[in-house]
Simulated assay, not measured.
Amino acid sequence: MRPLVRLDPATVWGIAVFVLLIAAGLYYVKWNPYYHRAFTAAHTHSIGTSIVSGTAAAPPAVGWQAAWSYAVAYFKAVWQAIILGLLIGAGVQVLVPRTWMSRLVGQSGFASTAIAGFAAVPSMMCTCCAAPAAVGLARSGASRGATLAYWLGNPMLNPATMIFMGFVLGWNWVVLRIVVGAALVLGVAHWAGGLVAEKAHPAHPGPPTIAPQVE
């Protein structure tokens, strides 16, 4: 990985604003709510009522009303995270230099994939909320492998999900989640990124061979 270039004061301020935006947004939308929910999961071994059935004993009958109710309930649960994902996706393009991002996570090697994958751990978003941020990374110069690692790392390496899973299902499932998640985020994302790069820049076949003519 090439060393990062020296940044001017305006760029430093832009990066500082971007980091502050991420920290404040994640604290309000993810970190603080999940912190309190972890205590609930530890005491009750549950994370609350179902988003489908609520407090009812059985899920609602299949139909348009059930679909609409679920869509409304899901939107109420994720709309703040979606807005945060949009802000992150826009902020990384506006406030962070493209050359800086390209040198950090824009290479086709494993290092860029690993950096993006571990950067997804504190985000703790679902795939739909992380999608705008992943698009912003790609447009800022991140490689395909790094972009995919960040997008998959949000749900797969979500520490809050692992804590809830440990209290509700058992810690053996957390170990399985970590192993499978790391393999998917680091291994599959890196392989897929290399596959895309190979298709975009195929190896040169070399000069054509000319068969000798027989007189």
Score class of each variant (00 low, 15 high):
Leu157Ile: 01
Pro122Lys: 13
Gln107Lys: 10
Leu176Tyr: 10
Ser102Gly: 13
Pro159Arg: 09
Pro132Arg: 01
Ala133Asp: 03
Ile88Ala: 02
Arg144Val: 15
Leu148Ile: 15
Gly136Val: 04
Ala81Val: 10
Phe118Tyr: 07
Gly153Glu: 00
Phe75Asn: 11
Phe110His: 07
Met124Gly: 03
Val105Pro: 00
Gln80Thr: 11
Met156Asp: 07
Phe110Met: 15
Ala160Trp: 03
Val135Cys: 04
Ile82Arg: 01
Arg177Ile: 01
Met162Leu: 14
Ala120Asn: 07
Gly170Leu: 03
Val92Ala: 13
Ala111Gly: 09
Gly136Ala: 06
Ser112Ala: 15
Ile82Cys: 11
Trp100Asp: 04
Ala182Gln: 01
Ala138Pro: 05
Ala134Gly: 10
Pro122Leu: 12
Thr161His: 09
Ser123His: 12
Trp151Cys: 00
Lys76Ala: 07
Val135His: 11
Val175Leu: 15
Val96Ser: 09
Asn172Leu: 12
Val78His: 08
Ser112Tyr: 02
Thr113Tyr: 00
Ala146Gly: 09
Pro155Glu: 03
Trp173Ser: 15
Arg98Thr: 13
Leu152Lys: 02
Asn158Thr: 03
Ser123Asp: 10
Met124Asp: 01
Ile88Gln: 02
Ser108Arg: 09
Phe118Arg: 10
Cys128Trp: 09
Val168Gln: 07
Met125Arg: 06
Trp173Asn: 15
Ala120Arg: 08
Trp173Lys: 14
Gly109Thr: 06
Gln93Trp: 12
Pro132Glu: 05
Ser112Ile: 06
Ala77Arg: 11
Phe164Gln: 09
Leu184Met: 14
Met156Trp: 02
Ala149Gln: 02
Val180Phe: 04
Leu95Ile: 04
Thr127Gln: 11
Asn158Gly: 07
Leu84Asp: 02
Ala138Gly: 12
Gly181Phe: 00
Gln107Ile: 08
Met156Gln: 05
Ala130Tyr: 06
Pro159Glu: 04
Arg177Lys: 12
Ser112Val: 08
Ala119Lys: 02
Gln107His: 12
Ser143Cys: 07
Leu176His: 11
Leu157Pro: 02
Val180Tyr: 03
Leu86Glu: 06
Phe75Asp: 13
Gly109His: 03
Gly89Tyr: 09
Val174His: 03
Phe118Ser: 11
Val96Phe: 14
Gly91Thr: 07
Ala130His: 05
Val96Leu: 09
Leu152Gly: 00
Ala111Leu: 10
Ala160Cys: 05
Ala138Asp: 03
Ile83Val: 15
Leu157Phe: 01
Gly106Trp: 06
Ala134Trp: 06
Gly170Tyr: 00
Thr113Met: 00
Leu169Met: 14
Gly153Phe: 00
Met125Lys: 04
Ile178Leu: 14
Ala114Gln: 01
Ser112Lys: 02
Tyr74Leu: 14
Tyr74Phe: 12
Gly136Ile: 03
Leu152Arg: 01
Phe164Leu: 13
Arg144Met: 11
Trp173Met: 15
Ser140His: 07
Tyr74Lys: 14
Val168Trp: 03
Asn158His: 03
Thr99Pro: 15
Val135Asp: 11
Cys128Tyr: 12
Ile115Ala: 12
Trp151His: 01
Gly106Lys: 04
Trp171Gln: 09
Met101Trp: 10
Leu137Val: 08
Gly117Lys: 01
